[in-house]
Design a protein around this nucleic acid. Structure first.
Lengths: 366, 366
DNA sequence: GAACGCGACTGAATCGATTTACTATAGTGT
DNA sequence: ACACTATAGTAAATCGATTCAGTCGCGTTC
């Protein structure tokens, strides 16, 4: 009988009453003079465990604690047991959009005892193509695609956030862009703006297309024209690598300024580009909201502290992440569950970057 | 002999020439009329592979392609093979500090073919205590602790970023806070500031203590006093959950304003709190830099687009992440490698939020 | 007192690959 | 023609746990 009690917080490398040898089922079996079967049955609480005497169970659990036995995850998985592991694919984890989503995902996954791999592909097509297989090799039971195209179907459940997948049977979590567009446009309209510029999202971003279409549709319904020359696209995806959204917004806004002196409102693709645009206007001697009103999108942390505080369409990113994780787990644990699309409600947050347009045509301040 | 060529991009669930059954070594062996041993030897390119005829090798590789055979990672690992998997522990992935670091880490890991788990513990002590073991169970070969305390030593290499570990034999990547402090202080001093307020980092953050100590030391050397009443701590760690750095900075700055009308300079713990503070000053009718100069820390994306553009001490977060990953891999692959501390050089980035103090004592503008 | 049932376990096959220690065949030198 | 050496491969044990199909002893029951 072993005398030593292992320190509860032993770090594997340290002593555990077994003199350095790994604590395996076989070792425990030896020590308890039972068969590995019995111990396995008790530990994994299989139905068979009912047939084991309580006294024996107690002995087993005690030994488990004493030696800090931890079943080998890999051996277990060989028998097709669950891995409780999923993957998140994302263009880049560096920006606040992705980071907030992942934060929400993580929160929910942790609550349910799941682990996750993160793969950021930076838009590289071959990574997008091959990493699902590698992840499958590693036993993930499901995947969350953030803003990432998926062309084929996979053998595990998939949830897409900011959907740009073509694959069937994928659940998706998307913001209600129609509602968002109408919210932003109506707000500006009510303030009295007639000429509105738009910063479209980069091609390759899941929301770009849908958002733009929604904006056009809403504009048509409200009898506004979104003039093409007052529209800028925020750069192609692959180039997004070293350029930040603010940077993209800054340059797009400058271009806009060169083209026109008329517009009094701007709807940006997101808060980052909105902040960049405001900076550009400011550099041109124009004030926000005095000369131009700006509406952002997302409501990132800085939005509320920006000068001026940013009026924006809030996307509940944390919730969306949680929702994505929850949907995924549901589909993993209840395979009968059908895939479905969840539309998330955006919210207009009015702050300081929007105001009625100046009565006079604007002119750069000195 | 199989007739069909598997589609190269088959998604596991789909046909692969084997009618749905898993493609295992045994299956391939059967199909090629070779023993599993031979195939294994060839595929894993063990030394023995030299003894296999080239012709046979070719046949094997062809079959591997044809059936899209992928060795089972878990079965492999049972034999103690490498997992190429590490873990990153972080308080929270949502903020730009962590996100940038992870982005750097990820970049380097991906380059070397490693996968990684992320665990964000939100400061919860029991998670910090238990997750290393769970991660070890999952076969990680090393861990990166971002801003996370580690009290015991682990059986795998550990690299700490923004170091607050007490464990021995841990490599660490830390910013040179002494240099940073001197940079910030000298900048303000040269502009003519005498009375300088400080926003200290939250307790529990790895850099807080060191940064503050460095600041005091540098101040002493430069013959400035950092008055305790002009010093604020940015809230305790656990409460940091729902509060953003900007929020913390905002409130701390307000408090500062209530206490004193004298200070003309502020050194913030990071850019988030700096932006919050600027907002608070502005709300009180004070301008930055006209009335108060503000120095941030980190140089996050928004810093360059903020109004005013933020003067800040840049921390090369992406590089630090890459460095951390590189160190970790080195220690994994060359166990003889000793742990060491890497001091990263900060850089002063002068923008618009700092200027000489106004000659007159300041007073709130209307 | 033979047949039966039941409680409490266990043996052996299995998951999918790796690895060590062979074997079988063909070719070489003398 | 015989030992000897490559060459080309294979059988079987192993990693650590799970699981199906028993086994063994003992108390009932008619």
């Amino acid at each position: 009988m072993a005398k030593r009690i292992a320190s509860s917080a032993n770090g594997r490398g340290t002593a555990n009453g077994n003199n350095g040898a790994r604590v395996t089922l076989k070792f425990l079996a030896n020590h308890l003079e039972l068969s590995p079967t019995t111990i396995s049955v008790v530990i994994s609480d299989s139905p068979l465990a009912a047939t084991i005497a309580q006294k024996t169970k107690d002995r087993i659990w005690e030994a488990v604690r004493e030696f800090n036995y931890r079943p080998n995850v890999f051996a277990r998985y060989l028998h097709g047991k669950r891995t409780y592991c999923v993957a998140v694919l994302v263009p880049d984890i560096g920006d606040e959009f992705s980071a907030s989503l992942i934060s929400g995902i993580e929160k929910e996954l942790a609550k349910r005892g799941y682990f996750y791999f993160v793969v950021s592909h930076r838009g590289a097509p071959e990574l997008i193509e091959t990493s699902p297989d590698t992840l499958l090799d590693r036993g993930v039971e499901g995947m969350i695609f953030i803003n990432t195209p998926l062309k084929r179907s996979l053998s595990v459940p998939v949830v897409a956030v900011s959907d740009i997948t073509e694959a069937p049977d994928v659940s998706s979590i998307v913001i209600d862009n129609a509602r968002a567009a109408s919210l932003a446009l109506k707000h500006l309209l009510k303030l009295g703006h007639k000429s509105i510029a738009v910063l479209r999202g980069p091609r390759g971003n899941g929301d770009s297309e849908d958002r733009w279409l929604s904006l056009q549709k809403a504009a048509a319904e409200l009898n506004i024209v979104l003039a093409p020359k007052l529209t800028r696209e925020l750069g192609k995806y692959p180039e997004c690598n070293n350029t930040t959204m603010s940077d993209l917004g800054y340059h797009a806004a400058k271009e806009l300024l060169e083209v026109s002196q008329e517009f009094t409102g701007l709807i940006a693709f997101n808060d980052g580009s909105a902040i960049g645009a405001i900076r550009a206007f400011r550099d041109a001697g124009l004030g926000v909201p005095e000369d131009i009103s700006v509406v952002g999108f997302d409501d990132i942390e800085q939005a509320a502290f920006n000068i001026p505080r940013l009026t924006t369409i809030r996307q509940p990113l944390l919730n969306m992440g949680e929702l994505a994780a929850r949907s995924l787990i549901k589909r993993i644990e209840q395979p009968a569950e059908k895939s479905r699309e969840v539309l998330v409600e955006p919210k207009l947050v009015v702050r300081e970057s929007t105001a009625p347009p100046a009565p006079e045509p604007r002119r750069p301040r000195s």
